[in-house]
Design a protein around this nucleic acid. Structure first.
Lengths: 183, 183
DNA sequence: CGTCGTACCCTAATTGCATTAGGTTTTTGC
DNA sequence: GCAAAAACCTAATGCAATTAGGGTACGACG
């Protein structure tokens, strides 16, 4: 019987493919096993179980988003950087709507996700360093940014904007709103 | 054998109790059945299945939120009404964090939820009628409001705000930000 | 007061998934 | 080549949803 030659990353790859195609709710060990051509229990050689696989998927997505966010802000500062960050985040969630939904709203609570989540947040904090915000003000500003980016992405990627108006335009309003509030 | 005398609403009541105590992910027919003192298959007399039960729970929550929102805005207008609406929505999600998470992000897609979701949205639209926004502007303004309320609630109710700063203060910033944007 | 029919509720059985246990075979390091 | 480790398998268990089909309380109606 030919051996597949799997490893943890390959399993996460397959899981990500499943998520992209059918959403996070379709992510089951059985589906992933079928996709990589292996019996379900064989996956336990590479991941500790469904919960662990989900965590690894989320970690992968967070890492990707951190890369996108970082790339969006290099060489920019203040309003330019913030607007670029926000637009790129939306681009990512539009391109991979299900992938986005695979990361829990509270990544910090999962020890396996704490580090990638931390790194992701750090980009937001860094971009706000261009404004002189005292300690607490920086926290509030970061949270507001996060609320807007997260809230918009969650609603848009689940098809929540039913009407004809372009969501991109709504998003520009939100960017304006946020930048104005930084004054 | 004593008969329980169940009905659809009682099942939804029990489901809501489960959600309140243990979150939406703990909502299973087995748990609900145990709570009302009945064998699992007996629930099918009153609800069509787990998916249907979830939809009914979500509808109940949406209806509740509509009542809260409506109450928050009666006798008020413009900034006063908007701020009151936002604060009351947060109060609700703080009081029932799990309940909030039981309604899907895209309620309009589920035919069973379309009507209560519609009614809920109508409150938001109504409160913005106090500003003279032309057609598309009203849509964008409603969406922005929804993004902020939803995003904040989602993050706060999942414990996403780790730091020491008071989330209420962050929320006031968001209210200010939004009201300013309406000028 | 009886009895009839409709709900209401049950047990039994099926299916799909996660997970554990315990083999067997391929690969790898020496 | 050979022993040990690693990758994979089948078999078995448990839990939840769902379907099928049978018994029984209870209200309506004679």
């Amino acid at each position: 019987m030919p051996r597949v030659g799997l490893n943890g990353d390959a399993v996460v790859d397959a899981a990500l493919a499943v998520v992209d195609e059918s959403g996070p709710r379709a992510l089951t060990l059985a589906t992933v096993a079928a996709r990589v051509g292996v019996a379900t229990p064989s996956l336990y050689q590479h991941v500790a179980g469904l919960a662990h696989l989900r965590a690894r998927v989320a970690a992968r997505v967070l890492t990707e988003m951190t890369a996108v966010a970082t790339d969006a802000v290099v060489g920019r500062s203040r309003d330019d950087a913030v607007a670029s960050l926000m637009r790129r985040m939306r681009e990512y969630t539009v391109a991979h709507p299900h992938r986005y939904a695979a990361v829990p709203a509270d990544p910090v609570h999962d020890p396996a996700l704490a580090e990638p989540a931390e790194k992701f947040l750090r980009v937001f904090l860094a971009v706000l360093r261009g404004y002189d915000l005292s300690g607490p003000a920086a926290v509030h500003a970061t949270r507001c940014l996060r609320v807007i980016v997260y809230g918009f992405a969650a609603i848009e990627s689940s098809g929540g904007f039913g009407l004809a108006e372009d969501p991109a335009e709504t998003y520009e309003h939100l960017i304006d709103m946020y930048l104005t509030s930084l004054r």
